[in-house]
């Protein structure tokens, strides 16, 4: 591929990724996931007693996600505390992870997932989902599969994989487009499909193909992170 991006990647290259499991000793499961300059940490607690009681489901345990940016994670200090954006992303993350886990053996309980972005450079929800999926596995929660997540974007007419902040804000041509996706690893089941911007309907297939390839790479990184803490 001839065209290079600002940081030297080709259009289909993902950023440098790094995953680490067990970063928070007090949690039942925890993980860090780094995509370029975006760093997410996730902690899992539970299954534990669920309060308030009206949220309890006697048929199965429930998942409860919370996503937030640290106040120092962005250039202009983010006011701490829940915001419209963080509430939406918490919900979207929860929906992305729910199909992967099975809490039928733990009725009336809750599994809490807390995601914190400690450094933000676009793609924070995808980094958060990748970290949370690792942390859930690390906590020994019964799962169908790991969840891999990647954002696809558009620079004018070119489809590009894993945008950073400068690319996400690209205003030229057809305008900024961000297409975050999450899927169950090794399957065709997508658990998160969002679209912010404009894209031609016939290009969506190409996007899914690129996401598939990127997710396969992310899955390998996740798998190695989980295996390397034992094989030492």
């Amino acid at each position: 591929m001839a065209m290079k991006r600002k940081d030297g990647r080709s259009l289909t290259d993902i950023r440098k990724m790094e995953a680490k499991v067990g970063v928070i000793p007090n949690a039942d499961g925890s993980a860090m996931f780094k995509m370029g300059d975006t760093i997410a940490i996730a902690a899992v607690y539970g299954p534990k007693h669920l309060h308030p009681q009206h949220m309890q489901n006697p048929q199965t345990g429930i998942l409860r996600c919370s996503y937030d940016l640290m106040s120092f994670s962005v250039n202009d200090r983010k006011k701490p505390g829940p915001s419209r954006r963080s509430q939406e992303l918490s919900k979207v993350t929860q929906w992305a992870l729910e199909p992967a886990i099975d809490l039928q053996d733990f009725p009336s309980t809750v599994v809490d997932v807390t995601i914190q972005i400690i450094q933000a450079d676009a793609g924070t929800r995808t980094a958060g989902i990748n970290a949370a999926s690792l942390a859930l596995a690390h906590a020994g929660i019964p799962m169908k599969n790991l969840v891999c997540s990647i954002a696809i974007g558009k620079l004018d007419k070119d489809i590009v994989v894993d945008l950073d902040k400068s690319e996400e804000d690209f205003e030229g041509g057809e305008g900024p487009t961000d297409f975050p996706l999450a899927k169950l690893a090794n399957t065709d089941q997508y658990t998160l499909v969002q679209l912010d911007g404009k894209i031609q309907p016939d290009k969506v297939k190409e996007v899914l193909k690129l996401a598939d390839d990127a997710c396969a790479k992310i899955y390998e990184i996740q798998k190695n992170a989980l295996k390397e803490i034992v094989e030492q």
Binding site: G29, Y45, P47, H138, G140, P142, M143
Partner: peptide, 22 residues
């Protein structure tokens, strides 16, 4: 495997032993 752990084959039965978690 439906969870993370150590897979073990004992005879015909395959199971995964937990190594982390609550």
């Amino acid at each position: 495997a439906s969870r993370y752990g150590l897979a073990e084959e004992s005879g015909r039965v395959v199971k995964v032993l937990a190594i982390t978690g609550a």
